[in-house]
Amino acid sequence: MQAEPSKISDNDLLKAIARGDEGALAGCYDRYRLILFSLILRILHDRQEAEDVLQEVFLQVWRRARDFDESRGRAFTWLVTIARSRALDRLRASSSRARLATEAEQEPHDSMGDAAADAVRSEEGEIVRRALAELPAEQRRTLFMAYFEGLTQTEIAARLGDPLGTVKTRMRSGLMKLRELLRDRSV
């Protein structure tokens, strides 16, 4: 690859991977390893399993990059969706839901594992974390339960002991707030 990996857009990176460019895949890994690993780890709560899944994710990216259609959504979304799906599949398969619960209700925060992570603390991430912090706690909670635990609206309502309608409204309001960030071009 000619240009610096960080200067190529996500879309172009995926296009290059689709063409069989190993360097593009390495570049994609470098760009996304933290966010994807953190996401998978938050779902599975096990480093070894999270690493296994991350490996599977990039193999899938390598194989399916040509399926990415930029008209249907962001490359970022495509990548995190693969990671989330694989992690939730692994979670369900290993019936390790018991490990959950305590993590799900935590406020979002950065715990920097190593110095390298500092450098990749993205602007986008900061903006999103600030927006999430501003959400009412119940809205944030329902979003996290759905996203990180893979729970359905019914399961969330049951877990919280709240009416289904209330849960639905909270999820909608919370997600609309995040959508505003995209529309305002903040991210």
Binding site: L34, I35, L36, F37, S38, L39, L41, R42, G73, R74, F76, T77, V80, T81, A83, R84, P108, H109, D110, S111, M112, G113, A117, V120, R121, S122, E124, G125, V128, R129, L132, L143, F144, Y147, F148, L175, M176, L178, R179, L181, L182, V187
Partner: peptide
């Protein structure tokens, strides 16, 4: 896309 932003929510590891 908005939901995908939630991936930013966790601590970076």
């Amino acid at each position: 896309d908005a939901a995908g932003l939630l991936a930013h929510a966790g601590p970076m590891q």
